[in-house]
Structures are given as structure tokens and as C-alpha cells.
């Protein structure tokens, strides 16, 4: 689906300067500084996923980090929820254009989960129950930037929003925050996930509007 005109320089047929739409006014003036380019604010919590919602029983749930050398670190539900947790309040930005402000989560920081993991990997490929994958540089999971979240808005995380637990990495487009997270594979080389393989951006910074490959 990637495509462009074969223009040799900027600003001819394909252009990056927006043109004004006659009679369009728009909204969102007061929150505009919190909206990355092209986004709009919603107060709903829309759902985006590629297939049916997997139903994962916490009794059978296990979360694993596997290093580039094959060492495994696993937690069952009781072990995982006994770890020290945090309650981040974050803005979410979905590549389908909605943004939602001040969402409240509870989860375990990846700093805690990776504390005893010996690795020199630079990349992570996140796997979900139901075969979804997404790639994230390892440094984007560290230093208080990412959590495995299991409560949202004071409630257990609902299955359609990724329960029992999902990755939360809010500084990237929300598809990177893999629902129904099952394991994280640490890798020396970047490996594309599900959406990244069909044209979505490898990194996905909303403030640089990295929606698709090549953005």
C-alpha cells in the first residue's frame, strides 16, 4: 500500500504544506497544544483490533520476557500482581486519529520487570495472546516510559481493551501498546510486528506523525 509520486523535489505534485479547506473551521482550540498533528480529542474509548477479542483466564495467564540468548523470565498472575505497581495518568494517541486525555491506569513498570534481566539487546518484539505482535526499541520500554497495565479507570482491564493485561507505552501511537500481552522477545535486530509488516511505521511517534512506513 505504500506509494508515492516519483517527484524529485518537494512541493510539486505531492506536497507537505496543508491547503485550506473552504468553510472548514474545526474545533479543539483549547486542547490543541495537547493534540499531536492530525489528531482529534475523543472522550470515548474506541477499540481497534484485527480480529476477535481473545478471552484469557488469569489462572492460565503467564507473562514471559525472553532474552536474545534464550533466557526466560516468567510471572504467573499472582506473582505479577504482587509486584510493585504504579498508577500513571497519560494521554493516548491512536493512529486512527483519536486522542484521549488523562487516562488512569495501574500496572507494573517495565523497569521492574527488566531489573534482573541481563541483556544487551536493542529491540523488543511484543507478542500477544491471539498472535498479535508489535516492535518497540528496548530503550522506549525503560526509564518510566512503559508498563504492563492490568487496571484501567479503577476497574479490571476489560477484554476488549486488552485485559487481563496489556502493554502501555503511551508516548508512541497506541497500536504499540499491545493488548493481551503474553511475552516480550528481546532482539539484537529490529523485527517488524503485525501492523508494521503491512505498512505502519516501525517507531510510531505521534508528535512526528509517524503513522506509516516512510513518514
Amino acid at each position: 500500500m505504500s506509494w508515492r509520486m516519483e517527484t524529485a523535489c518537494f512541493g510539486e505534485w505531492g506536497h507537505d504544506m496543508p491547503i485550506v479547506s473552504r468553510g472548514f473551521h474545526g474545533r479543539a482550540r483549547e486542547t490543541r497544544h495537547r493534540l499531536p498533528p492530525g489528531q482529534y480529542e475523543t472522550t470515548d474509548f474506541p477499540v481497534l483490533s484485527a480480529g476477535p477479542t481473545p478471552r484469557v483466564n488469569p489462572d492460565e495467564w503467564e507473562f514471559t520476557i525472553r532474552t536474545e540468548t534464550g533466557t526466560r523470565h516468567s510471572w504467573n498472575w499472582a506473582e505479577f500482581t504482587a509486584l510493585p505497581s504504579q498508577t500513571p495518568t497519560v494521554d493516548l494517541h491512536c493512529v486512527t486519529k483519536w486522542s484521549k486525555f488523562d487516562t488512569e491506569w495501574q500496572g507494573v513498570s517495565l523497569d521492574v520487570l527488566l531489573e534482573d534481566v541481563e541483556t544487551s539487546a536493542d529491540y523488543a518484539l511484543v507478542h500477544s495472546y491471539g498472535d498479535y505482535t508489535t516492535n518497540v526499541p528496548l530503550e522506549d520500554l525503560l526509564d518510566g516510559k512503559a508498563w504492563i497495565a492490568y487496571r484501567y479507570d479503577g476497574e479490571e482491564l476489560a477484554p476488549e481493551h486488552g485485559g487481563p493485561a496489556r502493554l502501555l507505552v503511551p508516548h508512541l501511537y497506541f497500536w504499540k501498546s499491545a493488548k493481551w500481552v503474553q511475552r516480550i522477545q528481546l532482539l539484537d535486530e529490529d523485527e517488524r510486528g503485525f501492523w508494521e509488516n503491512i505498512g505502519y511505521h516501525d517507531y510510531g511517534d505521534p508528535w512526528r506523525e509517524q503513522r506509516y512506513q516512510g513518514d
Binding site: 500500500m1 505504500s2 506509494w3 508515492r4 509520486m5 505534485w13 505531492g14 506536497h15 507537505d16 496543508p18 491547503i19 505498512g199 506509516y212 512506513q213 516512510g214 513518514d215
Partner: peptide, 16 residues
């Protein structure tokens, strides 16, 4: 079907 699967090319804005 013109989907080449080429990655890395920028999807550019155009006037419709």
C-alpha cells in the same frame, strides 16, 4: 491491485 508492498516510500498528501 497496485499494492506493491514496497516499504519505506512515503505516502504523500495529495489534492483531491
Amino acid at each position: 491491485a497496485a499494492v506493491s508492498g514496497r516499504l519505506g516510500d512515503r505516502l504523500r498528501w495529495t489534492t483531491a
